[in-house]
Write a protein that binds this DNA or RNA. Structure first.
Length: 780
DNA sequence: GAGTTTGAAACT
DNA sequence: CAGTTTCAAACTC
């Protein structure tokens, strides 16, 4: 029976492929005809007669899956040109899927699902193709679409019914950018071209990809497939060649995952296959939103994953993982147990998967999106310190272009103003996406992962604590504001750059999409007062390898709070202390008194102090140790996550990666402020490095065994800090050095003047392209 | 869950 | 810039 089904499916797929291959199928009528033909075809009939799978009308699929696929288009969507090669792969995919089915089919039931899924996918292909032909091509998504989408999304916010279609356009652009950037050499031209129009004359490397004008239609056919396309594997095949073998190989891998997803979706159940369950359980409805943001921000993750040798397909899980603290934890556990399934979080993938899941799964368990996830500049923060860009292949790099950082990185290249402009545009769209994501978060129900959490969290406080305990710390901000209307930095949500969500217990909350104008205005006001008000509070130093000891002690030696704390009574041993809360040691910037910060004391006498502490203050020590242990345990996962995965999609970000790829600049230091490996030029700024080096001893001396508490604040790598950010308090370094230890507070960055002209210029650019608080501005 | 403590944010 | 107030999170009971 199974064999027959497989055969039927293959034939069916073949039929579909034939239809799809028809050169002139840009008309709906034609497509309709094709579909009719398909359904009327002997093969189909045969399939119906043989297959236990009930023939599903395309319309039905349209209602259930198609929307999802559509939504996925953006993120997954790649350049039509690129797709040509993929197409070949794609074609194989169905065949492969058949063969691969047995591998993931544990039993008949599962297999049936898979088969059915495959059949559905086939029909879905038709559906999508139809949509594509229907005019999507002509209506190449524009950035305006993105904005539009954002607006619509905001409108839909209340009902949590994001307009995926519009979104699609946005995502696609980004995706395309990434795809075109397959090679750094071709990157510039490609990027330059693409944003302006749907077509891109791919020069050099990409020429061979230009085959089918509407190839990307095929990509639409299967959401999961799209995911595959983005996979590093795919890229590899693409960039290297159209080697059938390679494509085949990649196709197999991708198929595996796709089928899983499809199967799960189709069945409407959570097909628990290792971590697959995670994906399925993740906020079904949010997949779309997550998707874009994730897609934009996971370049780092991707890289990490690749380095780890994981399949990209698994990354989606990581994304999910990030979406919920609990989920994250869970995944981490999985990582330990099964790294293969863990993989990294590829925003795109994850999102796509989720897209597939949403409608059918009806699973609400996991909804919590990363709060700050890439919502604003903070997103720049907390990139995995050990992140390595080295392994970026051309394909990966291309993808990285998506990020706003690309602007910065490209800037140096002096490709051209036009290019820059285009890039900026891209960044803008990203921003929009981020905003959408934020909105999504807003719409998302209480943190998903913890199924019981939703039910049990009656009190905001408890919710918060729960969130933190589950590692959700900053992922799902929830406030309890009563008087601030959630329009001040008092509000954690607002400060984090996210809208308040349902679980928030705030009163008279204005931090909602419906009050977008107010929010934006307030934000501007606050930023005018302090440009870095929404910047990451914790600067994660570029830890030198030496500083990074074992996993147990990854407290970044150079990490520090942007402004420093002002604790008087807490001894910097409680979360009142932002340094402590952020899991970093106190620094010169701190005005704290009686600092006992376990992560590093202000006085830099950690070792001695610790001894003292142990000897002289037993009670205190007990508290400290206790807290430390708790922290360590609490954050162990967190740390690991950080080291391996970006805390947030954005974080992982494209920033570093892009820099890497585009590094062509002869003077990266001055022109590549975000360069991950290269210290930004600090001609005018005392090098952060030096500054951080000063911290290293202190922080290292701190208990090596403890890990920073789950950072409440978003953190940013020191070396990734935009210059303007570094400028605060006098350029990260400068800030530290210039800040008087006793000074009450570090004044906002007014030191632009201290920056070299070049830096200043770049800074301007950054500001334009990367609003410090994009997330709150869905319509930006 | 209510009340207290704390320190950041905001205000003057 | 310093001092004060406001605020909400963190914490305690």
């Amino acid at each position: 029976m199974d064999d027959r089904v497989d055969i039927s499916v293959k034939e069916c797929n073949r039929e579909v492929l034939e239809v799809m291959d028809t050169p002139e199928r840009s008309k709906n009528s034609q497509i309709s005809a094709s579909l009719a033909k398909f359904e009327d075809s002997p093969v189909f009939t045969f399939l119906n007669s043989l297959s236990p799978i009930k023939p599903v009308k395309s319309t039905h699929i349209t209602q259930t899956i198609n929307p999802l696929s559509f939504a996925s288009i953006p993120s997954v969507f790649t350049s039509p040109h690129v797709s040509s090669i993929r197409e070949s792969r794609f074609l194989r995919r169905h065949q492969l899927s058949d063969s691969s089915k047995p591998e993931f089919s544990s039993d008949d039931g599962t297999k049936l699902d898979a088969n059915k899924a495959n059949a559905d996918a086939t029909e879905q292909m038709d559906e999508q193709k139809e949509n594509c032909d229907g005019g999507d091509m002509a209506a190449e998504p524009s950035y305006d679409d993105c904005s539009k989408f954002v607006v619509d999304f905001a409108k839909d916010y209340e009902c949590a019914s994001p307009n995926t279609n519009l979104r699609t356009g946005c995502g696609r652009e980004d995706k395309d950018m990434a795809e075109y950037g397959c090679t750094s050499s071709a990157l510039v031209p490609l990027i330059h071209e693409h944003p302006q129009r749907g077509e891109v004359n791919i020069d050099g490397v990409n020429q061979n990809t230009e085959a089918a004008p509407c190839d990307w239609e095929h990509m639409l056919s299967d959401t999961s497939e799209l995911l595959i396309f983005e996979s590093p594997d795919v890229r590899v095949s693409f960039s290297k060649s159209v080697d059938p073998g390679a494509s085949f190989y990649t196709g197999i891998k991708s198929d595996m995952q796709n089928l899983h997803l499809v199967s799960a979706v189709d069945s409407g159940e959570h097909v628990v296959e290792g971590n697959e369950a995670e994906v399925m359980s993740t906020q079904p409805g949010e997949g779309d939103e997550v998707d874009n943001a994730a897609s934009l921000n996971n370049s780092d993750e991707q890289v990490d994953c690749e380095q780890l040798g994981f399949y990209r397909g698994m990354r989606r899980r990581c994304l999910v993982f990030e979406m919920g603290g609990a989920r994250r934890q869970h995944l981490e556990e999985n990582l330990v147990s099964d790294s293969s399934t863990w993989l990294c979080s590829d925003g795109n993938t994850a999102s796509n998967d989720q897209k597939l899941v949403p409608l059918n799964s009806g699973n609400e368990s996991s909804r919590c999106l990363m709060p700050g996830i890439g919502l604003h500049l903070n997103a720049l923060a907390s990139t995995p310190k050990d992140y390595k860009i080295v392994n970026l292949d051309s394909s990966s790099s291309a993808r990285l272009l998506i990020g706003p950082s690309s602007v910065v990185n490209l800037h140096p290249s002096n490709a051209s103003q036009g290019l820059l402009d285009n890039i900026l545009v891209v960044a803008t769209s990203d921003r929009d996406v981020d905003g959408m994501e934020m909105a999504v978060e807003d719409a998302c129900p209480p943190s998903a992962n913890a199924t019981n959490e939703e039910i049990n969290q009656s009190s905001p406080k408890k919710k918060r604590r729960r969130a933190e305990q589950s590692g959700e710390g900053e992922s799902c901000k929830r406030c309890n504001c009563k008087r601030s209307k959630c329009l001040k930095l008092y509000c954690e949500c607002f400060a984090a750059g996210v809208y308040c969500v349902e679980p928030c217990a705030c009163i008279d909350c204005f931090n909602k999409p419906i009050h977008e104008d107010t929010v934006l205005a307030t934000r501007k006001q606050i930023e005018s007062r302090n440009p870095l008000a929404f910047a990451p509070k914790v600067i994660r130093g570029s830890d030198s390898p030496l500083e990074i000891g074992d996993d147990s002690s990854k407290t970044p030696a150079s990490a520090r709070h942007k402004r420093g704390c002002n604790c008087k009574k807490s001894g910097c041993l409680k979360k009142y202390c932002e340094c402590y809360q952020g899991g970093v040691g106190c620094s010169i910037n701190c005005r704290c008194e009686g600092c006992k910060n376990a992560f590093g004391r202000k006085d830099g006498m950690e070792a001695e102090a610790e001894e003292e502490e142990e000897e002289t203050d037993v009670s205190e020590k007990s508290v400290s140790d206790k807290s430390l242990q708790a922290i360590a345990m609490e954050n162990d996962v967190e740390q690991n996550t950080e080291s391996v995965l970006p805390a947030t999609p954005l974080r992982g970000g494209s920033y570093r990666t892009i820099t890497f790829i585009l590094v062509p600049s002869p003077r990266p230091s001055a022109q590549l402020p975000f360069s991950s490996k290269k210290k930004p030029p600090r001609s005018s700024l005392p090098s952060i490095g030096s500054s951080s080096s000063s911290f290293i001893p202190r922080q290292r001396l701190g208990k090596s065994s403890f890990l920073p508490p789950p950072p409440k604040f978003e953190t940013i790598r020191e070396d990734e800090i935009p210059n303007f950010l570094q400028g605060e308090g006098g350029s990260s370094d400068g800030g530290i050095q210039t800040a008087s230890p006793n000074r009450k507070r570090v004044s906002p960055p007014h030191n632009a003047g201290s920056m070299s002209p070049s830096l200043r210029s770049s800074r301007k650019l950054i500001l334009e392209s990367i609003p410090s608080f994009p997330s709150l501005t869905p319509n930006q």
